[in-house]
Design a protein around this nucleic acid. Sequence first.
DNA 1: CTACGTTATGTTAACGCTAACAACACTCTG
DNA 2: CAGAGTGTTGTTAGCGTTAACATAACGTAG
Lengths: 336, 336
Amino acid sequence: MASIQGRRPPVMADVAREAGVSHQTVSRVLNEHPNVRGETRTRVLEAIDKLGYRRNLVARALVTKHSRTLGVVSFDTTLYGPASTVYGIEQAARAAGYFVSIVSLKSIDRSGVRDALDYLADQGVDGIVVVAPQRSAARALADLPLDVPAVAVEGGEAGDVPVVCVDQVEGGRLATEHLLSLGHETVWHVRGPSDWLEAEGRVAGWRAALEAAGRQAPEPLAGDWSPRSGYEAGRSLASLRDVTAVFVANDQMALGVLRAFTERGVKVPAQVSVVGFDDIPESEFFSPPLTTIRQDFGAVGRHSIGVLLRQIEGGGEHERLVVPPAFVRRASTARR
Amino acid sequence: MASIQGRRPPVMADVAREAGVSHQTVSRVLNEHPNVRGETRTRVLEAIDKLGYRRNLVARALVTKHSRTLGVVSFDTTLYGPASTVYGIEQAARAAGYFVSIVSLKSIDRSGVRDALDYLADQGVDGIVVVAPQRSAARALADLPLDVPAVAVEGGEAGDVPVVCVDQVEGGRLATEHLLSLGHETVWHVRGPSDWLEAEGRVAGWRAALEAAGRQAPEPLAGDWSPRSGYEAGRSLASLRDVTAVFVANDQMALGVLRAFTERGVKVPAQVSVVGFDDIPESEFFSPPLTTIRQDFGAVGRHSIGVLLRQIEGGGEHERLVVPPAFVRRASTARR
DNA sequence: CTACGTTATGTTAACGCTAACAACACTCTG
DNA sequence: CAGAGTGTTGTTAGCGTTAACATAACGTAG
């Protein structure tokens, strides 16, 4: 029930008066302190209910030095990957009783990351998750003198900061091995931007699988994650001879590749097999449905909060948590 | 420069001592109060720099009653629309000097919305943006006794709460009129979930355009925004006679429709024309590239912050701001 | 029955900041 | 040169909470 009186919302002292106790006793009830008599507790709770009292978390944060807020710094949360990760983070944080304050960066350079961290530190967050898929971001994070516990997501080696990431190398390997196992002589690659650690990891896995099979690795084609860049890479590939298998570093670019192949009359998977990466909700309905590598972004988000809370509460060692990717077979790949 | 001494970070009193002034003068400098002598100001700023002082925003919020934090409640920020809107909101809010605390809901029922709002109110946010595309959310918002300024995004009629939205009816009309102008006898529709206001608006625009042209409106097919539901609708449509034009309520479902048509050997746009809605980054690379209706989510986000800040600062009238959609012609539609 | 630990409660003092008022040095006016 | 204004600074008192200590009531052991 909301109070009707005056204007100002009720404070602890009001509840105390109503219940005939001291404000400290009210505080004890709220904080579930054991040494409160049952009858007193119910009287206090009744008063709280009657007055519609809500504890002022700002005042609480001032004295406890804990805001129960976590900061999240991310790059372009419009993209499926970051958006899903942030979603997982938010769910996990809220389940653990933490608020989430978010900063989305347009560009991840050192000063951008530094500003974001400063900004969040000013706000008094208890911990920070940095979704730092770019090398520059990871490096900025590593260099920064942090007075707040932090976790890097997809951060590669981020100095003293614990890292949670998907095993990109393994993903690249899975994709490439699948194509080789179908009898393809070699596998072409449309890679992501060189500043991105995820892109590097996928390239590394692709190269490793080719080498292990004793195959020559063609020069990878450069993309920027966008469908358009995939489209352009696809046009280049379509005009080459001997291209029978392509591993594309994400599903959006794979869509562009498929589009270019369609335009050029290249049949997938009859003439060329294509594997993507991410497993976005759309890829099952591409033409043809895309074979891809699934990343469990939700798990990454949850784990990052787990690691962060352990840091905040326990003290915490320098953890590094790697989430395995999963291979998803669909219709864009076929035997040579 | 960070201070090396002791442990505890410096507070205003430390700066005051260092600069040989009172802490209140430090506060004045920080708040850009006009009545501070230039020389004093620089002495204070030097002391701040020397000690690496950072103002404690929690303490500040306690006394000013303003946290400079805005709350955002949204449904499934994994989807492109909500993610883009939230991104726009976050950018605009930060530009205005506000923090953004976000709550992503899995389901938008009354209690979910109420809990989220309570949660944010507890945190002491200065205002709330509710991305409330579902009727239930809008209604929950309208019913709630709010003690904090709020804005609904895509909220339809949300009681006393100002609304910012895209003109969905107009979008539905644009899509349908385009198809009719190409000589199609009538236009079929794959609609979104009935609880969603956006879905309703698009249906209304579609129906209005058909009526204005004196055409019969076929029974709309139901979808849930997912590519799969579009795929299923597409299979149904493929088995019907006389379907030459389809307006699909979002691009993801349109992808599913295209996939179903491809499987059944229905040629787009030769046999059937398809129009989507949203203009997600992928749709330009569908096969064929999708004609669609673009929503400017960024503008919606920015406007919602504008309206909210006017509410917070000015007092504010009950605004209602409608953002127009834009027609994007690509290759999935053709003359009958 | 006294002394002492235990439980339940109250009192006081922070936390770090801003608001309100007080005080002082000036300048300006008549 | 007295009085009023103005600019600059300091002092004091909160904001609403929790932490630390003080106190009272009670049961129990010696």
